[in-house]
């Protein structure tokens, strides 16, 4: 039924799932986990989002993409930002992690005690090379091209690669 101010939320989820992450276009913003809820409200539809990192510059791009895409579909949406529960890479499904790997980014492992405690080293965390699956990898920088990634080097295939950090 076109023109309805209350389109099916399932359809909105489908549309949102087609919007790529601006910095890692291999996965959608839904797969990334930043879209938390789609709710029917009085003035149409509300999309609830949460940032990956507080200062992530891609957040604005994601909000704009949601607005633009919904406008194209003729759906009126408002966006509400929430901070709690804080975004975590544990919200990514195994399918999403496989997409990251196929794109050349080593996916995040499950969060462990070490990740949540500042004085525990995460150096023991195994990060497999996304290209050759070698475990002989080393961290070259905790910070990479975006807030969510670290830089690694694979001793197996002698390739540098990015790792989507556990967060």
């Amino acid at each position: 039924m076109s023109g309805s101010s209350h389109p099916d939320t399932a359809r909105i989820w489908d549309i949102l799932n087609e919007i790529p992450d601006p910095e890692v276009p291999a996965i959608s913003i839904v797969e990334l986990g930043v879209v938390r809820e789609v709710n029917r409200v009085e003035q149409g539809t509300e999309v609830v989002m949460t940032p990956t990192y507080s200062g992530c510059p891609a957040m604005k791009a994601m909000e704009d993409a949601v607005r633009e895409r919904m406008k194209e579909e003729g759906i009126e949406v408002s966006i509400r930002i929430v901070y709690k529960p804080a975004w975590t890479t544990d919200w990514m499904s195994e399918t999403t992690k496989a997409k990251l790997k196929a794109y050349g980014i080593a996916p995040p492992p499950k969060l462990t005690f070490e990740h949540l405690h500042p004085l525990s080293s995460t150096k023991g965390t195994e990060v497999k090379c996304p290209f050759c699956d070698s475990k002989q990898t080393r961290l070259t920088s905790q910070f990479g091209s975006t807030a969510c990634k670290a830089l690694y080097y694979c001793e197996g295939c002698q390739q540098p690669f990015e790792h989507f950090k556990c967060h």
Binding site: S54, A86, H115, L119, S121, Q142
Partner: peptide, 12 residues
Amino acid sequence: AKSLKEMTYHVR
């Protein structure tokens, strides 16, 4: 909750 996660790796 958001800031805590970030301060964790800043301190690390």
